[in-house]
Amino acid sequence: MSRHRGSRAASVPDGGPVEGLYEIDTGTCELVKDRYLANGWILEVNGVPSSHIDVSDPTILEFEYMRWITQLLAGHFARDARLRALHLGGGACTMARYLAATYPNARQVVVEIDGRLAELVRDWFDLPRAPLLRIRVGEARNVLTSLTDATRDVIVRDVFAINRTPVALTTVQFTRHARRVLAPGGIYVVNCGDTRDLTNARREAATIGSVFEHTVMIADPAMLKGRRYGNVIIAGSDLPLGDSPTLARHLLGGAVPAQVWTDGQVRKFAGDARVLDDSEAPVERRTPEPGAHESGTSGTS
């Protein structure tokens, strides 16, 4: 494997991705060829697998949790919908690339904290150009709180520092901003990574359930039974979610069969878990409540 080390000035070869280790603003990223998929690539950020992308087919999603998200959205939005999607967490822009292919009228913004990583991803992969897909460099919470009310139909939060989402992106104050930015009928979707005790998932479910009338959870049965570390998808909306028999069948038929829990089950799962609060987050990450926000004074990208 060729490796590119030690210099931000190292150029990315023309003609697509090349295996190697590259310096980025937050450390390093490594691009690894998928040994089992001819046109597949794995992006690792600071030693942790972050994204998988197939350069020949944007609809191939190797990460199961991404398939679960797209199946949830498919049951909520028609394919000709003019989706306005906000992705908090960029990586290789796998999810945004998928939505661009399956929702051709979509307009998307991907928020990525690492500017150098955003440049590399643009160079490596065939991403749609603005206005179909824009990459905005910034911190997820700062960007979210700057956006105008009711300007997004989908918000996907998929941000991790090593193996956990920063607390400031999980709190009830952050979730209220997500709801404020969503248009009526919109969906807020989070990828929650957790251990077998499911403490994070319970608290995130309680937090999202305190802000949205309707919630849903998707995960594989072993995860829901507390048998392993993994991903749990939790979503909230002002409309019912996850009650489609088609969704349940598709989830069970995947490579990793998953279950869907609708609102009553999610709230039972959350139980008396404490809602996540900004008091648990670093002071420098706190932002005003939605009521104190001057909506629209910042960019609405």
Rank of each mutant, 00 (worst) to 15 (best):
A101G: 08
R141W: 02
V109D: 06
P131K: 13
V110T: 12
S146W: 04
L117D: 05
V143N: 00
R107F: 01
R122K: 09
P104D: 09
R107V: 05
A92P: 00
E112C: 07
A100S: 05
G91Y: 03
R129H: 11
C93I: 04
A101S: 15
R141T: 00
I155N: 08
R122L: 11
S146D: 03
T102F: 11
N105C: 08
E139K: 09
N105P: 01
A150C: 08
R134I: 13
V110K: 07
V156K: 15
A85G: 14
D126H: 15
A150K: 10
L86E: 01
D126I: 15
R129P: 02
R141L: 03
E139Q: 07
V156N: 15
D149M: 12
L133H: 08
A118C: 03
L88I: 06
V143P: 08
A100P: 01
R129K: 11
L144A: 02
L132N: 06
R116Q: 03
W124M: 11
F125V: 11
L133S: 10
L86M: 06
A101V: 06
R129Y: 05
Q108D: 12
R116C: 02
L147A: 02
R84H: 11
T148C: 02
I135K: 04
G91S: 05
V109H: 11
D153F: 11
G115R: 14
A100L: 00
L133E: 07
V109N: 10
A130M: 05
R84M: 05
T148A: 10
P128G: 00
F125T: 10
L132Y: 01
R122A: 06
V110P: 01
G89F: 09
R136M: 15
A118I: 04
I113G: 07
R82L: 11
P104I: 00
E119F: 13
P104M: 07
Y103H: 14
T94W: 08
V110F: 08
G138A: 02
G90D: 10
N105A: 11
P104L: 03
L120M: 13
T148H: 08
N105S: 11
R97Y: 09
M95N: 02
V156E: 14
G91I: 02
A150E: 10
A100V: 01
A106L: 04
P128T: 00
L86S: 04
L83V: 13
R84Y: 09
L144K: 03
R107G: 03
G90W: 13
D126W: 15
A140S: 06
V154T: 14
G91M: 04
Y98A: 12
V109M: 07
Y98K: 04
D123T: 15
A96M: 14
V109T: 07
R136S: 14
